[in-house]
Design a binder for these strands. Structure first.
Length: 884
RNA sequence: GGGGUAUUAGCUCAGGGGGAGAGCGCUUGAUUCACAUUCAAGAGGUCGGUGGUUCGAAACCACCAUGCCCUACCA
């Protein structure tokens, strides 16, 4: 027999760790390839190796765990692949900072030593987040844990790089890219965050050579003028027609630059004349290409002015801007300064203003990769949930530009390219190159750059399953079933995985993309370190338990939408856990004599039994359907309502009489059976959401099997649906609520019973009410209960209420406050009149009668009948009161 | 400039073509007998505005307002 003595209060700390260890040690999360078994697989969005769990992770992984546990119980061969990401820039920044503290730097210790340090850092902090995921309850297959820089992933990355290069889809080019002077590396377009900022538009005049004429140009970044190699005007701009082809003298610098026409220029903006700096602006770069202009780099990688800027050399770019404006003003070149709002790019990692600069980088040609990725989504092979993200994804891919994949970092996958120091050849190879295939030289130098971290993440769904080997894992678990992630990385990650999956995995990487929003603070702000408004999920787990955190994170929010974090909501979830705990405690306390082999005869079921079993069956349907539709919040809410509002508030209360009555063994056994059945199966429904508490309770109550996580998902419970019993029970519940209401009105003494007289307009209910009078006694203190069969001569001196099919009278000699009661009933009449009027309008509308579905019309008629009956009864009461 | 999203009770949010919902908060009452992390009763809303579709709109469509988010090379 189980231990039937459990603590009075839900205390998650006392069992969460124990059960996680039990699951993990028994390898219950582990998936083996099994031919013929339906697979269900998810790859985790790999968290940063040096990071720690934040609320976003907690939500993301809760969602995944719910889906995985649900499918596991449904009998799928379920794999949840865990792992983490090497997070190039972030990790490198941490190691850099550590070195700085030691008074050294990566340049001092050198690349090899630095990478050793980075690995040590990874080893030291890398497992932290995996432990945190465990404390959340994540049922990952830890035997398969991967890292984006482990041997297998590195092999996959190199394979992909080399084949894309051989196909001409990876190329090296000197182009304009976004440069972060702080992180000291190139960035891809999507790693730049644009923000509107107030700046200035400086109007400067450039002299036309050999004349005293000037051209007025407008710029937001005057310091780039050191790199100007032309001025552009629109070809149709009559103001400047005569100037095209002329030469200008660049102020201060004195360089001669041409005026040329290009239709990129907007004559309406500024002065209609644009200074062109091909090495420091993407548009100018394009124009420079079209018109054969020289590119002059005037800034160094750290954002200071280059040697070729004269006295400004070495000066910070903004300092230079200020000083240069002063000089221009002094020398009469500066005409005016306007306030001007414009979008400024910032490094998404460190926030520094990004500098567009020309440099030699590696790029992926995206268009041919993007097309099938668009098709896969448009054709419905991959489905976004919610669907609206489809458009966001497609729009981005339809306008995609080439992806800059080289980063000037040391921590990451080093690019497998070598340069021959003798003949200048570039060698891209799967094996480390030692000899130049062109000239035979051994004097090769490897490219120093590493790849964008997202390049390897893009391979995650198949590289973790052993690709490029054709493994059994790939055959069984690829494509994965669903990807669960936030909308903030659709471009960074989702789109790139689809492209790489289709190209190299030979199939889509996942069938569904389940997108969720962000967890914000209680004021709706993003949680961030700088604001200090972050809430550590580990703190919540320690204080309230992982189940509570999980439940809170998935209720009261809709797929794809952001949610706010409220401690009140955490408490509410904890209260629910406590409620369930105590319902179970109640069952355990009444388990004595429980017979596991006993099955009630059909006739032994009471109304309450049939009702709760039917409600349970509805709940199974709701929860299953909602989980299949990714409506996790709705599924959880459905269980919550069932457990609290139906099982606890009604069924347990009604079962007490039978459970406490040890004389009547059959009735008691039936109640034990029903309560046991419903509770045990409801625990299974709840298990994916709250794995720990359900396991703890399940292990205490009668059960079959080793762990609730292996028990089958409740299914085929439709035979328990019993609409008739639900209807009767609803009538009884309504009557109970009405009686309670009256008793509250008259301040009835809680312990004191009230006589109740019932009169039925629906005779069909009489039998059931007669049989189940005790429900009214137990839950509404109604005693004695009399059924009044005469329609005439109804009880007079009484408080009344009317519910569907039943009139209720509580004789209250001397207790009735006639004035108050009359007012109450008048209010009721007012309400009923409004409803009746609304319905008669509807029912006299020909269009409604002709076009509305017959069942709706019938329903509305019944409603009207019900309201009219109620109104009559209330009016009768009013006239009685008036006569007093 | 383009797109998305939100607008429902005091607060935070679900829902959804045919009788307005939850949690928290608030008011009143209740404590041997699963749970005060509780129970019971109650107050509180012309579902942002205007049009349209429909027999019927809070829900669907269009436009508008306000907030938030994404996106875009106007120097």
């Amino acid at each position: 027999m189980q231990d039937t003595n459990i603590p009075k209060v839900y205390d998650p700390q006392s069992f969460e760790k124990k059960w996680y260890e039990f699951w993990e040690q028994n390898k219950l999360f582990h998936a083996e390839v099994e031919k013929g078994k339906k697979p269900y697989s998810i790859v985790i969005p790999p968290p940063n190796v040096t990071g720690q769990l934040h609320m976003g992770h907690a939500m993301d992984n809760t969602l995944q765990d719910i889906l995985i546990r649900f499918r596991r119980m449904q009998g799928y061969n379920t794999l949840w692949m865990p792992g983490c990401d090497h997070a190039g820039i972030a990790t490198q920044a941490k190691v850099d900072a550590a070195l700085r503290e030691e008074g050294t730097s990566r340049y001092e210790i050198g690349r090899e030593k630095f990478i050793e340090r980075a690995w040590a850092w990874k080893e030291k902090f890398g497992s932290r987040i995996m432990y945190q995921l465990r404390s959340l309850g994540s049922s990952c297959d830890w035997d398969r844990e991967r890292f984006t820089m482990d041997e297998g992933c590195s092999k996959a990355v190199r394979e992909v790089f080399v084949s894309l290069y051989k196909e001409g889809l990876i190329y090296q080019g000197t182009r304009i890219t976004n440069w972060c002077p702080q992180c000291n590396t190139a960035l891809s377009d999507i790693e730049v965050e644009h923000e509107n900022e107030m700046g200035h538009l400086y109007h400067i005049r450039y002299q036309v050579k050999d004349t005293d004429q000037y051209v007025e140009i407008a710029t937001t970044r005057p310091e780039t003028m050191f790199g100007d190699t032309g001025v552009a005007v629109h070809p149709d701009d009559i103001r400047y027609k005569a100037l095209v082809g002329k030469t200008l003298i660049l102020p201060i610098v004195g360089r001669q630059i041409p005026v040329f026409a290009d239709s990129y220029v907007d004559p309406q903006f500024g002065t209609g004349a644009v200074k062109v700096t091909p090495a420091h602006d993407p548009n100018d770069f394009d124009m420079g290409q079209r018109h054969g202009l020289e590119q002059i780099l005037i800034m160094d990688n750290d954002g200071t002015m280059a040697e070729n800027t004269g006295k400004y050399a070495g000066m910070d770019r903004y300092e230079c801007r200020r000083k240069l404006i002063e000089e221009l003003r002094e020398k009469g070149f500066l005409l005016s300064i306007e306030e001007h709002e414009h979008a400024v790019g910032h490094c998404s990692r460190c926030g520094t203003t990004v500098e567009p600069m020309v440099s030699k980088q590696w790029f992926v040609k995206m268009q041919s990769l993007a097309e099938p990725a668009i098709e896969a989504v448009k054709s419905g092979k991959i489905k976004f949930v919610p669907e609206r993200f489809t458009r966001i994804y497609c729009n981005w891919l339809e306008n995609i530009r080439d992806w800059c994949i080289s980063r000037q970092l040391w921590w990451g996958h080093q690019i497998p390219a070598w340069y021959c120091e003798e003949c200048g050849a570039t060698i891209v190879s799967r094996e480390d190159a030692v000899i130049c295939p062109k000239c035979g030289s051994h004097n090769l130098k490897r490219d120093e750059d590493v790849l964008d971290t997202w390049f390897s993440s893009a391979l995650w769904p198949f590289e973790t399953m052993g690709w490029p080997e054709q493994t059994a894992e790939l055959r069984q678990f690829y494509p994965t079933s669903v990807l669960v992630t936030g909308y903030d990385i659709i471009f960074f990650w989702v789109a790139r995985m689809v492209m790489m999956g289709l190209k190299f995995g030979k199939d889509i990487p996942f069938k569904h993309v389940f997108i969720h929003g962000l967890v914000r603070d209680s004021q709706g702000r993003k949680m961030s370190k700088s604001l200090g408004n972050g809430i550590d999920p580990v703190d919540v787990i320690e204080k309230y338990g992982a189940d509570t955190l999980r439940f809170m994170l998935i209720t009261g929010n809709t797929p794809g939408n952001d949610m706010r974090f409220y401690w009140e909501r955490v408490e509410s979830a904890r209260n629910f856990a406590n409620k369930l705990w105590n319902a179970s405690r109640f069952m355990l306390m009444n388990l004595e004599g429980f017979d596991a082999d006993f099955v009630p005869a059909e006739a032994d079921y009471t109304l309450a039994d049939k009702w709760i079993l039917s409600r349970y069956a509805h709940t199974v349907q709701n929860v299953t359907q909602n989980l299949e539709d990714f409506e996790l919040g709705e599924a959880a809410r459905s269980i919550y309502e069932f457990i609290w509002n139906e099982l606890c508030d009604w069924y347990i209360e009604l079962s007490k009489a039978r459970l406490y009555d040890k004389e009547n063994s059959t009735a008691r056994k039936v109640a034990q059976y029903v309560l046991g059945y419903v509770l045990e199966h409801t625990l299974r429904l709840l298990h994916p959401f709250m794995p720990f508490i359900t396991e703890e309770i399940w292990q205490h109550i009668p059960h079959d099997g080793k762990s609730i996580m292996l028990s089958p998902w409740p299914d085929n419970e439709s035979s328990k649906l019993d609409i008739d019993s639900e209807k009767v029970m609803t009538a009884i519940m309504d009557a109970i609520k009405a009686i309670r209401n009256i008793r509250a009105q008259v301040n009835a003494v809680p312990g004191k019973k009230s006589e109740v007289i019932l009169h039925f307009s629906d005779a069909g209910l009489i039998g059931e009410f007669e049989k189940n009078q005790s429900y009214l006694t137990t839950l509404a203190a109604a005693e004695p209960v009399t059924i009044w069969r005469n329609s005439a001569d109804k009880p007079g001196n009484a408080m009344t209420a009317v519910v569907d099919g039943v009139e209720i009278y509580l004789p209250m000699a001397g207790l009735i406050d006639v004035q108050k009661e009359t007012a109450r009933l008048n209010k009721e009449i007012e309400h009923l009149n409004k409803e009746i009027e609304r319905l008669s309008k509807k029912l006299s509308n020909r269009g409604f009668l002709a076009k509305a579905p017959a069942e709706i019309v019938e329903k509305e008629r019944e409603k009207q009948k019900g309201y009219t009956e109620k109104k009559n009864a209330v009016e009768e009461r009013l006239s009685y009161l008036a006569d007093l």
